[in-house]
C-alpha cells in the first residue's frame, strides 16, 4: 500500500516546527515514530500534503524531575520509558504501561507525545496519563499552554489541540510508592486492548470504554468515600459509552471494565 504523495520536511528545532505549523498547520501532519500515522496514510484514510518530521528533535527527548512532577519530552520513545530508572522509582505505572504497547519494533519507534496526540481511545498510554492526572504542554504561534489531560480529549482521534499547535511535553506527578496496576485484556499477543484499566493511588483510567480515554469517576468517588474494592469496582462502567465491534459487545466491555478494575484495585492495594 502506497500513501498519496506528500512533501516532507525535517525542521531543525521546535521553533522551526511550530513556525511551519503556523503556516501550513491545516494541510500538515506531524510525524514522530509514524506508527499510527503511516498506516492511516497507507490505507489512504489520511492524506496530508506535508509531513513535518519531529522524530529526531533531541530537544523533545528528555525525562527529568521538575518539582513534584516528571517532565517528559513529547518525542520520548516507548522503549525509553520502559528502561527509565527514574520512572521506575518515581512513576512506575508509566513504564509498566509502555511495556504493553504493541511489540518491541513498535516501541522502538512510537513516542509518548505521538500516542497522546493521536487520541485513539484504544491506546494504552492516554488512559495511563489520564489516571495520573497528567498534563500536556502545547506550543503554537500564540505561545505555550498547559492542558490537563482530563480536558484534552474531545472525541475519537480529536482533542483541543489546534492544527497549528505542537504537543511538546507531558507532565505527570511523582507517585512514588503509591499502589498502581495496569490490567489489559486482549485475545492475541499484540492486539489492541479490548478494555484496559490503569489504576494509581485510587485514580482509575479506562481504555476503549468510550470515544475518548475516560476516568472511572464513580469508582474513584466510591473509593474516596470509603467503599470496598468490590463496591467501587462495580461502578467502573458508570458514565461510559463503550463501542461494540468484532472483539466484544458493549455489555461485554462493561463487564470487563468492572472485572479489570476490581483486579487492578486489588493488585494496587486499593
Amino acid at each position: 500500500m502506497i500513501p498519496v504523495a506528500f512533501d516532507y520536511v525535517r525542521p531543525e528545532s521546535v521553533d522551526a516546527a511550530v513556525a511551519l505549523l503556523g503556516e501550513r498547520g491545516e494541510d500538515a501532519s506531524v510525524l514522530a515514530g509514524g506508527h499510527s500515522l503511516l498506516p492511516l496514510m497507507k490505507l489512504r484514510f489520511a492524506a496530508p500534503e506535508l509531513l513535518i518530521d519531529i522524530g529526531r528533535l533531541e530537544e523533545l527527548q528528555y525525562l527529568r524531575l521538575d518539582g513534584d512532577e516528571i517532565a517528559i519530552g513529547a518525542g520520548t520513545r516507548h522503549t525509553t520509558l520502559e528502561a527509565s530508572e527514574l520512572l521506575d522509582t518515581e512513576c512506575p505505572l508509566l513504564p509498566a504501561v509502555a511495556r504493553t504497547v504493541g511489540d518491541p519494533q513498535v516501541r522502538h519507534r512510537g513516542t509518548l507525545g505521538g500516542s497522546l496526540a493521536h487520541a485513539d481511545p484504544a491506546s494504552d498510554l492516554p488512559a495511563a496519563v489520564l489516571a495520573l492526572d497528567g498534563t500536556v504542554v502545547l506550543r503554537g504561534p500564540r505561545g505555550a499552554r498547559r492542558v490537563p489531560l482530563t480536558g484534552f480529549y474531545t472525541g475519537v482521534f480529536s482533542s483541543v489541540k489546534e492544527p497549528d499547535e505542537l504537543l511538546v511535553e507531558v507532565r505527570v506527578p511523582r507517585t512514588g510508592a503509591a499502589g498502581w496496576a495496569y490490567e489489559k485484556f486482549t485475545r492475541r499477543a499484540n492486539d489492541w486492548a479490548i478494555v484496559a484499566v490503569a489504576v494509581v493511588d485510587g485514580w482509575v483510567g479506562l481504555v476503549n470504554m468510550g470515544p475518548t480515554p475516560l476516568r472511572a469517576s464513580a469508582t474513584e468517588a466510591a473509593l474516596a468515600g470509603g467503599a470496598s474494592i468490590e463496591e467501587a469496582a462495580a461502578l467502573a462502567d458508570e458514565g461510559t459509552d463503550p463501542p461494540a465491534d468484532s472483539a466484544g459487545s458493549t455489555e461485554y466491555r462493561r463487564h470487563l471494565a468492572r472485572l479489570l478494575t476490581r483486579r487492578a484495585l486489588t493488585t494496587a492495594g486499593r
Binding site: 510525524l31 509514524g34 503511516l38 519494533q105 522502538h108
Partner: peptide, 18 residues
Amino acid sequence: TVLVDGESVKSCTVLTVQ
C-alpha cells in the same frame, strides 16, 4: 523487520527519508 542503528523496526511502516 530490519535493524536500524541496531534496533528492530518494521520497515513497511518507516519512510526511507526517516
